[in-house]
């Protein structure tokens, strides 16, 4: 739950999104209208919050919030 909560907080802040509208299926580009700078800021905040490296080619494969959360959890378990 902690990963979900922290990541949703980052998404809310960067995209000025209403938390009630965010679901696992929310798409960064189609639904949140992410521009390049938003994606780079999202990668930066994710890396520093969770202490993981997110190569930009990996980030671009994660098109939804649910996919991104799964990716972060996988990276954290590899780290542990």
């Amino acid at each position: 739950m902690e990963v979900e909560k922290k990541f949703l907080e980052i998404v809310m802040d960067i995209f000025r999104a209403n938390p009630e509208t965010l679901t696992d299926d929310t798409k960064f580009i189609d639904d949140l209208h992410a521009k390049s700078i938003d994606t780079i800021a999202l990668i930066a905040a994710t890396e520093n919050t969770f202490g993981i490296r997110v190569p930009s080619q990996d980030a671009r494969k994660n098109q939804t919030i649910g996919q991104a959360i799964e990716y972060i959890k996988k990276k954290l378990s590899e780290k542990a």
């Binding site: 980052i10 800021a41 930066a44 520093n48």
Partner: peptide, 15 residues
């Protein structure tokens, strides 16, 4: 972007 998340972003070298 609120300061709590800006702080995480600015710690990235490029920002």
């Amino acid at each position: 972007i609120p300061e709590r998340t800006s702080k995480q972003i600015i710690q990235q070298s490029i920002f």
